[in-house]
Design a protein around this nucleic acid. Sequence first.
DNA 1: AAGACTATGTTGCGTCTTGCAACAAATATA
DNA 2: TATATTTGTTGCAAGACGCAACATAGTCTT
Lengths: 399, 399
Amino acid sequence: MSEAGAIGAPRGIRQRNELAAMRALHRFGRLSRAELARILGLNRSSSGHIIAGLAGDGLVREVGAVEQARTSPAHAGRPGIMIELVPEAAAFLGVEIGVEHITVVEIDLASRIVARKVFPFAGRESDVETAVRQAVGMAFDGLAPARLARCEGIGVAVPAQMDRRGFVRIAPLLGWENVPLADLVRAALPVPMPVLAENDANAFAIGASHGRSEPQSGVTLHLVMESGVGGGIIADGSLFRGAHGLAGEIGHLRVPGTGEPERTLEEVLGLECILTAYRTVSPAAEPSFAGFLADVRDRVPGAVAIAEGWARALAFGLIQACRIIDADRILLGGSVAALYPLMAARVLHHIQAIQEPSFPVPAIEANDDETVGPAFGAACMLHRRYLSAESPRLADDAV
Amino acid sequence: MSEAGAIGAPRGIRQRNELAAMRALHRFGRLSRAELARILGLNRSSSGHIIAGLAGDGLVREVGAVEQARTSPAHAGRPGIMIELVPEAAAFLGVEIGVEHITVVEIDLASRIVARKVFPFAGRESDVETAVRQAVGMAFDGLAPARLARCEGIGVAVPAQMDRRGFVRIAPLLGWENVPLADLVRAALPVPMPVLAENDANAFAIGASHGRSEPQSGVTLHLVMESGVGGGIIADGSLFRGAHGLAGEIGHLRVPGTGEPERTLEEVLGLECILTAYRTVSPAAEPSFAGFLADVRDRVPGAVAIAEGWARALAFGLIQACRIIDADRILLGGSVAALYPLMAARVLHHIQAIQEPSFPVPAIEANDDETVGPAFGAACMLHRRYLSAESPRLADDAV
DNA sequence: AAGACTATGTTGCGTCTTGCAACAAATATA
DNA sequence: TATATTTGTTGCAAGACGCAACATAGTCTT
């Protein structure tokens, strides 16, 4: 109700400005008070007061004189004292419940990964309660007591359709339906803390765009290609969920020339499809995706033909998507993304063949950082939340 | 630079809260001070001060006691004094430069249409300078001096790819390329004022979603179906432009089963395509779209067959789009939209046939208000701007 | 019909935050 | 060495909001 853009009491202003300062420090890493003042559009004196307040709460600190030397201003005038976030001041957990694994990530206030663990998990055979219990247990298992006290929330990423409140409508890969996932997680926590749940592709998108060097403007389509193909859209730095959290689910696009009715993109791009096709041409007893990649790299004709079909379908899907969301950047994730670097030229060729020339061609990249995945993104969701207006600190003060 | 979420001086706070109050009054029409305070999350006393300030500027007023009676609170306690925007306090102009017409709209501070005029225009044969001169001339022609003094900006809608600053990259239907449209308009104005330019489909989307009863949450895909087919996306109340302002351009989707390479949706759904097909089956000397509609209504087989193909293509396009942006509502505009009510059942049938059952089906409506179009939307862009933080009032104070 | 009840609008006061200007500090440059 | 430039700090003033109390104007109860 109060979210109509109005601004409350002086205390609220300070609260917001402190959060804006922390967001700036997260984006830029290190800033002097004067730089911060310019970025925030505030006076230097106000900036100083805000930093003093945050330092009093142990959230930021002046960097040591030793490290300070690193920064070379080439600058006249008194050099500024650099300020940075105190990484240990907070912890955020992220969990991905996948079909075969549960991944757990812990990040700090600087949104850097502190710990990351992967456990095997039989997603298809486990019920929700078991999955939640195991996931939460693994997340908190190795967490030091000091970190637990600082833990400001946990995020859960699941291959599911879910609403903003973490209610799962349906998760075909896990066999879930109408499950209040966030509530179940909340009930399983050792300590009360904020809980957010999100579709795994959306979580990946958040994680991949949360870093400090990521561009804040423009539209990036993030794809996760595993057995299935999911997608998430980041527009001007924030997630575009769509009306039901399904935005970017490019895997269910129809691909022409694949029978009647047409097959979906997921059925053409996914790991299953590639391996099925690869089995018919590979002499190996147990064809693997790694073997397929090697064959493509070695220009084995059968594998190359499969990859060529994959490239054409990918190009088609990306172009259809770009006609609708007008992305200027596409980031490919998931294990199948490793095929892209080998086929980049073919994909671009097809894009230019399909697309009308007046339309811009998006930049396409394959994600090369293993640790950036849905679990990391789920943790980033809480990191982001902490640094935005809905922060628990704000709510506490309001009481 | 200062747009990092930071909040400045007390004066800035008041400024923002006054704008938030005006937005609330625009959305809800009439509010008492106490209601406003609840909506804005402020104290009643602050609300009173804000209203006093706005009333002093002549932007809001208490509604007359006569009209007041209309509202039936069924409410214990002292009834509130209703406040409303003063419509005459500001004027905003909107111009649509189309292929065949120039449309001019004037709206007031309540975003209601004060005047609307349509002029024939030979878009294909006119150069940019002529078009701009004529459009601006028509916009200001009938404007009373008192209104001119209150005019807070002009918006221009054009069938073109353009960036946020109103630079046209290409406008195939008008033969324009690399034209600084907003700058040209600015130079042609009789009085300096803010100028915004936008793609016509995006402008339509803004106009159709700007009314007070429009839902602020959810995602709506707006289609404009004329000779071409354009689209604009409104997500949670604001326009989703994409990286280059091309988001929602559903007309360039590829439609399977229409030859090799596939034809675009625009080539299948547009007026041209329908009329071309209709000519081959109609005995009329000069087949018109109105005649086509009548034939469809009368179940003339040839026309029905054409409409059936149209319905199938529309269903395909909408479903592809929904897989990517996850819209929960689709609003069809442009003259071809009149075909939809006749074919709604067929379109829904095809949607349910194509789409996997686990996905939600969006609500589809045809726009029935003639006056809501790109020109109105262009005016709404400035109305919205006036009621948001970039308002010129703010800038003036900052000087 | 009269009083109780309830919600609204107003007013004075206190708290808080920001901006401004001046000053001390620290470094580059002439 | 002296100057210029930028930074961080410190009083001071202005402004905005919240709070509490009060007058007001309806509805509801007895």
